[in-house]
Design a protein around this nucleic acid. Structure first.
Lengths: 338, 338
DNA sequence: GTGAAAGCGCTAACAA
DNA sequence: TTGTTAGCGCTTTCAC
């Protein structure tokens, strides 16, 4: 309401209004030094009344800090990187750190450009996120600030990456299906060139082997699409008509698989159980029936990445290598025991 | 590689290295004043060699500018706000403005908190984005910086909002269906309490009326879900078995509608055409057949919002009211003419 | 042409 | 208990 709001108030004005020196005002507002309680109150009141906010540029200049970090994503802030970002923001926000966001459109030139810009802005650290966990080139060796990769992996061993435990996710699905009494289990998943697809398949087959059983046929590698899910299910049904469960490499694939199963007269979950991967709500809930799926705990990944970054900023020895975060299983209709 | 990289270089060091005064170094680097070409070169070389980057805090302190804006979203950086953000980032990034992102989780307390923080950081403007275009409380009257709402609408007439033209989107769908020879057109959409749902329905019915025809029954208001799409289609088919086309209020609804139509023996697009709304790729492309749908041009909305913000920051008279951005139609299989 | 000095808003020594 | 001063890194007068 008051038009002073629009004017940026300096500590000089506060000091003048409170009838004290500028240094005293500073001490009063920051609770430093020895001041009479009455003085403190007077300064606070003046600051309050004038709507004073300390200029962080000036503070930062003095302390040599900016309390900002950069968040670089190649996923166009997509479905995977967003929850990661939220988790990260959570952890950072609590520490009063603000986040500069940059989207690289997966373009290395833009990426380099943004990194430059972030460094110029004196961010205290950088988080790099991505769409998939495939190793990617490091954003730079020997940067003057710590860097953490979240939901994406640097190709350099010197960097530190936080990614989901795809292997564990596969095993989780396997054990759940076994526990519900299914043993003839098929696997329809994404392209074999993706580490994530290979790891999920490994986790599945290893867990099955441990239980003394094996996969129904080889894993069916294809695309990350519904269309491939529909095709894959057909292939699987033809080769293994007696299949009791299908573990799918993504929720989209699972939707396609579910659709074909239904069209081929299989009831889910009575005849065939289906498990997806991603826990992508709109996909999972539109599915018929709603889909049991593996959740990668993306928020957790972001949070952990951010916490590591904060520690590194705080001077902790810089971590290296890859940290995997456990997945969890979200139960829905598609694997219910009848 | 060089370990100097890790050290933050000041202009003082550059000046020393070049054997000039600090003021001369500044002039050389900024192309100001009158200097010998040789001096300029020497300073530039030193700066280059040492990896000097001017400290934006110091520059900003002097100029009284921060070259940052805040982006506040209540959509948890969801499907709608992300493209808006990308568009905005595009427009701002070109102007060397960096973006602080804040997610409010749709919590007014958090929102207020973030606005405070952004103002404390001396952002030069704020963009507010949301999930839907429903009017929402203003983030604050008389803030010291300009504010623009994108893909969400402030309840206050004094604010400036940029939203999609839902009405026009509905009309677009109507005219397209008419152009492909369909006249008996049904409408399944989201909850009536949403302005977006009402506007889309209006656009549709008005355009049909203009063409001298009418909607098949009343618009079916329900939920924004696939499940409701399935139910809605059943209701529609029962009341109007001869329906030739269905315009859906969202792509998710359209998926449900498509599924039921198929299960009830209707071929798409031969017997019934389907149009969705949102152009949400994973939904639209998994649909059988791929879905013709209305695109809200979210990136454009973000870009326009950011441009207005930049102008306001530049001192242009602050805009007020609501600006609607035209939708466009994306053609796919579901409305093909046989 | 170049250097010296002031000052952006703030905090932290040091004086008073 | 309070005021004064120096200085964070930079740009910009104004002398030289």
């Amino acid at each position: 309401m008051s038009s002073e709001q629009a004017h940026v108030v300096t500590i000089r004005e506060v000091a003048a209004a409170a009838g004290v020196s500028i240094g005293t005002a500073s001490k009063a507002l920051n609770g430093r030094g020895k001041l009479r309680e009455e003085t403190r109150a007077r300064v606070s009141a003046a600051a309050e009344r004038l709507g004073f906010r300390p200029n962080p540029l000036a503070q930062g200049l003095l302390q040599g800090r900016t309390y900002t970090v950069g968040l670089v994503t190649g996923d166009s802030f997509g479905r995977f990187s967003i929850p990661v970002m939220l988790g990260a923001e959570d952890a950072l926000g609590a520490g009063q750190i603000s986040v500069f966001m940059c989207d690289t459109r997966d373009d290395p030139i833009r990426e380099q450009h943004y990194v430059e810009r972030l460094l110029a802005r004196r961010v205290e650290g950088i988080i790099v996120t991505g769409r998939r966990t495939e190793p990617r080139p490091s954003i730079g060796a020997d940067l003057p600030v710590p860097v953490v990769y979240a939901m994406t992996q640097s190709a350099s061993d010197d960097d530190f990456s936080v990614i989901p435990d795809d292997r564990g996710g596969g095993a989780l699905a396997a054990r759940h299906l076994l526990a519900t009494g299914r043993t003839r289990i098929g696997h329809v998943t994404g392209p074999e060139r993706f580490e994530a697809a290979r790891r999920r398949a490994e986790g599945l087959t290893d867990a099955l082997a441990e239980a003394g059983t094996g996969l129904a046929g080889d894993p069916l590698f294809g695309e990350w699409t519904e269309e491939w899910g529909r095709q894959g299910a057909d292939i699987l049904l033809r080769a293994h008509p007696d299949v009791e469960a299908v573990f799918c490499g993504s929720d989209q694939i699972a939707r396609g698989v579910s659709e074909t199963l239904r069209e081929r007269g299989r009831r889910i979950p009575d005849d065939v159980a289906v498990v997806g991967f991603d826990n992508w709500e709109p996909m999972v809930e539109g599915c018929r029936p709603p889909l049991t799926t593996v959740d990668m705990n993306l928020g957790e990944i972001g949070r952990i990445a951010a916490e590591h970054l904060l520690e590194a900023i705080g001077g902790a020895p810089r971590a290296r290598g890859v940290l995997t975060v456990p997945c969890s299983l979200v139960l829905r209709e598609s694997t219910r025991v009848s």
